[in-house]
């Protein structure tokens, strides 16, 4: 029985990280769908969300729900700002240059966060009290339940947004054909701004959810974000269900390899498996066979 309980424990820990990877991966996808680029500032939205939560709780003194929503909203605003100030003035539509541009912007964001919040690691409190509950033999922190629940809600809201709102439908239009979308009068600039806001919000949500578990620092988002990127690729960039699947798979693989193989090399296993999948099935689990 003990080994089954351990197994469930690893499942929960894998799903927790996997949900966070999935949220970040969705952020990568939304921007990729509307602009065709990988937006590396996504990794910093994660740290930024955590930082905003920390500041609004301790410096401003807001109650948890307000601080939580404020942090997500702030990260969404940051996303919009990045698009408006950083990406739009560029004169080029060369994807290579635009991707390097987001790398530059990401370096700047990290630099700003380092100056504003310093290099020290900080502790962020969880959403609700720290009393663990027992589910299927595993000991689960309330924060983990929050992560799973809020990820589910975020995915549902995103699905509703892209299917049922006019903005969401416009964004899908731009994703499938930007020129045609501009031709029928869709405001492509506004759509790009909104896609960055969504990406920022998703990154911020991932940040406020995971930093109570990982502790917070200005570069906490880098490794998390790159794993989110890996999840996006595993799931086949562009397909939302695929990306969520990719995130959860990566989280579970990582958790099991840390548990049964070696925790020191868990990043090696995670990225090793990613490379393997890329070699065998480059379009990812549910990607369209474009290659």
């Amino acid at each position: 029985m003990q080994s089954f309980n351990d197994f469930m424990q690893f499942v929960f820990s894998g799903l927790t990280n996997g949900s966070v990877y999935a949220l970040i991966a969705l952020g990568f996808c939304v921007v990729h769908n509307t602009m065709g680029i990988v937006n590396f500032t996504q990794v910093d939205f994660v740290s930024f969300g955590g930082m905003l939560l920390y500041t609004s709780l301790f410096a401003v003194g807001l109650p948890m729900p307000a601080a939580f929503l404020g942090a997500i909203f702030g990260a969404a605003l940051a996303g919009m700002l990045v698009e408006r100030v950083g990406i739009r003035p560029s004169k080029t539509d060369n994807h290579l240059v635009l991707i390097f541009l987001t790398i530059g912007l990401s370096i700047i964001l990290r630099g700003i966060m380092k100056i504003l919040w310093g290099k020290n690691r900080m502790a962020v409190p969880p959403l609700t009290a720290d009393k663990p509950v027992h589910i299927l033999g595993a000991t689960v922190l309330p924060q983990i339940i929050w992560i799973l629940l809020l990820t589910l809600i975020a995915v549902a809201v995103l699905a509703w947004f892209f299917r049922c709102t006019s903005m969401g439908l416009c964004m899908r239009g731009v994703a499938s054909n930007p020129t045609a979308a501009a031709l029928v009068g869709l405001n492509v600039n506004r759509i790009k701004a909104v896609s960055f806001a969504i990406a920022g919000g998703l990154g911020g949500l991932a940040g406020v959810l995971i930093t109570p578990i990982t502790t917070l620092s200005y570069d906490v988002g880098v490794l998390l974000g790159l794993k989110g990127f890996a999840a996006a690729i595993l799931g086949g960039f562009g397909s939302f269900p695929g990306v969520v699947l990719g995130g959860l798979t990566l989280g579970l693989l990582e958790s099991f390899s840390a548990a049964y193989f070696s925790s020191a090399y868990k990043d090696v296993t995670a990225f090793g498996i990613l490379l393997l999948v890329l070699f065998i099935k480059p379009q990812g689990f549910l990607g369209k066979g474009r290659h």
């Binding site: 560029s90 240059v97 790398i103 530059g104 990401s106 370096i107 964001l109 990290r110 630099g111």
Partner: peptide
């Protein structure tokens, strides 16, 4: 300001002279 300067140079160069 190392990071910010590196990033700014990269961004400005890419924006003005891709």
């Amino acid at each position: 300001y190392k990071d910010i300067i590196h990033g700014l140079i990269l961004v400005v160069v890419l924006t003005v002279f891709p």
